[in-house]
Deep mutational scan, measured.
Amino acid sequence: AMEMGLACVVCRQMMVASGNQLVECQECHNLYHRDCHKPQVTDKEANDPRLVWYCARCT
């Protein structure tokens, strides 16, 4: 999947907007926009540098 680069696995886009940054699952290393992931990634989750985030598939 490395050839995908830094794109969201849901929408396949790399564009990021304020409040909709890409977050990386620490287990599978897929990237998700906060708005694309279900459930939506919260501000607290996205902005906490100590948080280890896992996508819905890996939790």
Rank of each mutant, 00 (worst) to 15 (best):
D35P: 04
H29D: 03
L6P: 10
K44M: 10
R50N: 15
E27T: 10
L51G: 15
V41Q: 04
R12P: 02
M2A: 06
N20V: 09
Q21N: 09
V16R: 13
S18L: 07
S18C: 06
W53V: 02
Y54L: 13
H29M: 07
D48M: 08
H37Q: 05
N20L: 04
V9R: 05
T42G: 12
V10L: 06
E45Y: 12
H37V: 08
R12I: 01
H33W: 00
D43V: 09
E27H: 11
A56D: 03
P39K: 03
N30Y: 08
L6F: 08
Q13D: 08
V52S: 12
T42C: 15
D48C: 03
Q21V: 09
C36S: 01
C58N: 00
L6T: 14
M4H: 14
V9G: 04
C8D: 01
M4S: 14
H29Q: 05
C36R: 01
C58M: 00
H37R: 03
R50S: 14
N20Y: 05
M14Q: 15
C28F: 01
C28Y: 01
R34T: 12
M14E: 14
Q26D: 06
R50F: 06
N30I: 04
Q21C: 11
A46L: 12
N47A: 05
P49F: 03
C25E: 01
R34F: 13
L51P: 13
T42H: 08
V9W: 02
H29N: 07
Q26A: 12
C58T: 00
E3F: 03
K38I: 13
W53T: 06
Q13I: 06
A17P: 12
C25R: 01
P49T: 13
G19V: 08
G19L: 10
T59E: 15
L31E: 02
C36T: 02
C36Y: 01
C36L: 01
D43A: 09
T59R: 12
A17D: 04
K44Q: 08
C11P: 00
C28W: 00
G5A: 12
R57I: 07
E24H: 04
P49D: 13
L51C: 13
A7H: 15
A1C: 07
D35R: 10
P39E: 03
V9F: 08
H29K: 15
N30T: 07
R34S: 12
V16S: 12
Q40E: 10
Q40P: 11
L6S: 15
P49W: 02
C28T: 01
C58S: 00
V10P: 01
E3L: 03
W53D: 07
L31M: 11
K38D: 15
D43R: 04
L31F: 15
M15D: 15
C25K: 00
Q26C: 10
M15Q: 15
W53S: 10
R57L: 06
M4L: 11
R34N: 13
Q40V: 09
C58K: 00
M14L: 11
K38H: 06
K38M: 09
M4E: 09
E3A: 07
R57F: 04
D35L: 14
E45K: 15
N47Y: 04
Q26E: 11
C58G: 00
A7P: 15
N20A: 10
A7V: 08
Q13A: 08
A1V: 14
R50G: 13
Q13H: 10
Q13E: 08
C8K: 00
T42V: 06
V16E: 13
A17E: 10
G19Q: 05
R57N: 09
Y32G: 03
T59W: 02
C58P: 01
G19R: 07
A1F: 05
M14W: 05
C36D: 01
A56Y: 06
C58R: 00
A56I: 07
E45F: 05
S18H: 13
C55I: 00
L22C: 10
L51Q: 13
A46D: 08
K38T: 12
A7E: 09
C25I: 00
T59N: 04
V16L: 11
D35V: 08
A56R: 07
T42W: 05
L6E: 07
V10K: 04
D43Y: 05
P39F: 03
N20M: 02
T42R: 08
C36A: 01
P49S: 12
C8G: 00
D43E: 10
E27R: 12
Y32P: 02
Y54N: 12
C11Q: 00
N20I: 08
N20P: 11
A7G: 06
W53K: 06
N30A: 13
H37T: 07
H29P: 02
K44F: 06
H29A: 08
T59F: 03
E24K: 04
W53A: 07
R34C: 05
Q26P: 11
H37W: 03
R50D: 11
D35S: 10
R50H: 09
C28L: 01
T59P: 06
A46S: 08
L51I: 03
D43N: 14
N20Q: 15
V52L: 11
Y32D: 02
E27G: 10
R12M: 08
M15V: 12
H33N: 02
R12Q: 14
M2H: 06
T42D: 07
R34M: 12
M14N: 13
T59D: 08
E3N: 09
L6K: 15
L31D: 03
A17R: 10
D48F: 03
C25T: 01
Q13R: 04
A7C: 11
G5H: 13
G19E: 14
R57M: 06
C55A: 01
M14V: 14
L22V: 12
Y54I: 07
L31H: 14
R34W: 15
C28I: 00
M4D: 09
V52N: 11
V10A: 09
L22R: 06
Q40M: 07
G19S: 10
D48P: 04
Y32T: 03
A7I: 12
Q21I: 08
M4I: 13
A7K: 15
Q26N: 12
R34A: 09
A7F: 05
A1I: 10
C11F: 00
V41F: 05
C8A: 00
C8S: 01
G5W: 03
E27L: 07
V16C: 10
S18N: 13
C11T: 00
L31T: 14
A7S: 12
C55Q: 00
V16F: 11
S18G: 12
N30K: 14
H33L: 00
A1P: 02
L22Y: 14
R50P: 10
